[in-house]
Design a protein around this nucleic acid. Structure first.
Length: 426
RNA sequence: GGAGGAGUGGCUGAGUGGUUGAAGGCACCGGUUUCGAAAACCGGCAUGUGGGAAACCGCAUCAGAGGUUCAAAUCCUCUCUCCUCCGCCA
């Protein structure tokens, strides 16, 4: 959510921002409603002043007849007030509806573009592996080593269901250990194991609702399954005033993640690249309300993730996300994509964005500034690592001609020194 | 799942229809005192929003939403959260 005062004073900036994000939003329409709201509010307030003054009089009058007369007079004032308040209810609900739809203004450095096809590659790292054999995809490799059961996954869980088996499980645990240890060394992150079942407000607060309803699983109790631990983690400090000296607060959050993938029908229907449930370590930062701070930590979060891919020796590239591919609240976003040999392309593994105070305004997360003023903090987040998706890249890049998989060096110590998975004995 | 109890400012805690944004205490900030500190004493101390150059003034806020009333922290309804007891349970 943006500050209405900011919107009033910078209506062109906000409108241009929406345009850059290719989001249909009419700032003028909002401002018309806002004006109505302000006018009605002023009217109601002056009527209430009158009412309050009358109340005071009524209290101080001892003569019963006079008191009755005043009360009768008040009834008229009250009736008028009620009418205005009914009117106001309609206006305010319209206003609120519009307010939560105002897109945050993208940074000046965000490139123009209508959708993901116009994102800009700004960096590549690592050497794309050359195989002297036809590389298999992760499904073939994993099935060949009895590491996955997709058929039974579908039988038990439905479309996009999967079982990881045997070494895949060990590898997965090794990755978690690795990520956790690396990240804990990387900085002052507070490890957090979060709920994955959350209340609606958390999703509104982080900006996943109202727009993203169809991609969320909802329970019969009105709660939702999160698509990322960013949601509970950001909500952790909601409605709080954080002591300024505690900022920045950095979380390394972990949770299962659930996504309906409603907008991705027919995409990546095989394997474990796109699944309905997965696990993710997420980096979340709350910092002072200052653009430079946000930028600084955005780069830091991105570097942390890059470091993990580099240590895993996975070739990747960094994308600067264009306006049309940004979310409602995002100011700027980098995606990291790791190399997938079977498809001969890079595919997304990380997404780093910052929001300024868009989320904290909705979640009411504040701190007291040096000059004693309460301010909404800034928020940012980035993936640390998600499984099983990262397995796709690891397994495909590390595959051997005999169908076995070399284990990335940094993971070996988490797998009892094992250096290779397979090949399967016949 | 059943039966009860509770939710007031940074904390504690009074307040059960009428100058209550809310007593008292603690914490915090300023001052007096002191060589300095502690103690004591004096003063200040919520947030949001509208107006104003400012002083200051209006409105709202006592978990949240709605209702009753001329008037609600106080009465009624629903929701949320917490506590106690019983049942069930990884």
């Amino acid at each position: 959510m943006l500050d209405i005062k900011f919107i009033r004073g910078n209506k062109d900036v906000v409108q241009e921002g929406a345009k850059k994000k290719h989001m249909p939003f009419d700032v003028d329409a909002l401002l018309v409603v806002d004006e109505k709201r302000c006018a009605l509010l002023a009217e109601i307030e002056s009527k209430k002043t009158e009412q309050n003054q009358f109340s005071e009089k009524i209290v101080n009058v001892s003569n019963p007849a006079e008191k009755m007369k005043l009360i009768d007079e008040m009834k008229v004032v009250k009736e008028n007030l009620n009418k205005k308040e009914e009117e106001f209810k309609l206006v305010i609900s319209e206003w609120q509806k519009l307010m939560i739809q105002v897109p945050n203004v993208p940074d000046i450095s965000v490139p123009e573009g209508k959708d993901e096809t116009e994102n800009q590659q700004i960096k590549t790292w690592g050497e794309i592996p050359k195989f002297d054999f036809q590389p298999k995809n992760h499904i073939e490799i994993m099935e060949g080593l009895d590491m996955i059961d997709l058929e039974r996954g579908a039988k038990v869980s439905g479309f996009r269901g999967y079982f990881l088996k045997n070494e895949a499980v060990i590898l997965n645990f090794a990755i978690w250990q690795f990520v956790f240890n690396e990240m804990m060394q990387a900085g002052d992150f507070i490890p957090l194991l979060t709920p994955s079942l959350v209340k609606k407000e958390t999703l509104l607060g982080t900006g996943y609702l109202p727009q993203g309803e169809e991609d969320l699983y909802k329970t019969q109790d009105g709660t939702y399954l999160v698509g990322t631990s960013e949601v509970p983690t950001m909500s952790y400090h909601s409605d709080e005033i954080i002591p300024a000296e505690k900022l920045p607060i950095k979380f390394l959050a972990f949770s299962p993640c659930f996504r309906r993938e409603a907008g991705s029908h027919g995409k990546d229907t095989k394997g474990i690249f796109r699944v309905h449930e997965f696990y993710k370590f997420e980096q979340v930062i709350l910092c002072e309300a200052n653009h430079e701070e946000s930028v600084k930590y955005h780069e830091e979060l991105t570097k942390n993730a890059e470091k993990l891919l580099q240590v895993l020796q996975l070739p990747y590239r960094t994308l600067l996300i264009c306006g049309g591919d940004l979310g409602l609240g995002q100011v700027k976003k980098y995606d990291l994509e790791a190399w997938v040999p079977s498809e001969n392309i890079y595919r997304e593994t990380h997404s780093a964005s910052y929001f300024h105070d868009f989320q904290t305004r909705r979640l009411n997360i504040r701190y007291r500034d040096q000059d004693g003023k309460l301010k909404f903090a800034h928020s940012l987040n980035n993936t640390a690592l998600a499984t099983p998706r990262i397995l796709v890249s690891i397994i495909e890049n590390y595959q051997q001609v005999d169908g076995s998989i070399k284990i990335p060096e940094v993971l070996q110590k988490y797998m009892g020194g094992k250096k290779i998975i397979g090949p399967k004995k016949v």
